[in-house]
């Protein structure tokens, strides 16, 4: 971990009782969903993390408690530091509070969270699907959502697939 990052991480650990994991010089802090708004406000205002680089999630299905980690990747331009914050949430009715009030770029990223993982974002100003059509069912990036593989058409099975392929009409 970078020397300049250590006091910041320590501060968050003391204030919120966060667990710390390190891998290849990257620091990952684990927080509870209700702490995230306070923690990000503190990091932005006192430690110059001006940029929310990424906001996404990982699905650990079939594990259910916690099933998801919501990930906030922060960057400080002034101090040239990076910090990752992970918020574990459970599989049944996953929920995180919105951080759009802190970083405006979270708006679209949280809509993506809702669309792709079905994680509800409490207090989001515009909770619509962002990438998939409005009437789409399911959340594609969940591990229990099928990839949707279709059998490719080669010369040996051309006729067989040709019969059932839904060709468009004029």
């Amino acid at each position: 971990m970078d020397k300049n990052l250590e006091p910041i991480v320590k501060n968050i650990q003391e204030k919120f009782g966060a667990a710390l994991e390190e891998f290849r010089e990257e620091a990952h802090l684990f927080l509870k969903p209700e702490q995230i708004v306070d923690a990000l406000t503190l990091l932005r205002d006192e430690s110059n993390f001006e940029l929310l680089s990424a906001l996404t999630a990982t699905d650990y299905w079939p594990q259910t408690a916690p099933r998801f980690h919501v990930i906030y990747q922060l960057t400080s331009l002034e101090k040239n530091l990076s910090l990752q914050i992970r918020v574990p949430v459970n599989g049944d009715s996953p929920k995180v509070p919105t951080v759009t009030g802190i970083y405006a770029s979270a708006n679209w990223r949280e809509r993506e969270l809702l669309d792709m993982f079905g994680i509800e974002v409490e207090g989001h100003p515009d909770p619509r699907r962002i990438l998939m059509p409005e009437d789409h069912e399911g959340h594609p990036l969940r591990k229990d959502y099928p990839l949707g593989y279709e059998e490719p058409q080669f010369s040996f099975n051309y006729d067989e697939i040709d019969l059932r392929k839904p060709y468009a009409k004029e």
Partner: peptide, 20 residues
């Protein structure tokens, strides 16, 4: 079994990749 985030400067900005 771990996660990394690595970013490069693309012509449009920070292109980051989180790989787990």
């Amino acid at each position: 079994k771990a996660s990394v985030y690595s970013a490069v400067e693309s012509p449009r900005g920070e292109l980051g990749l989180m790989l787990e």
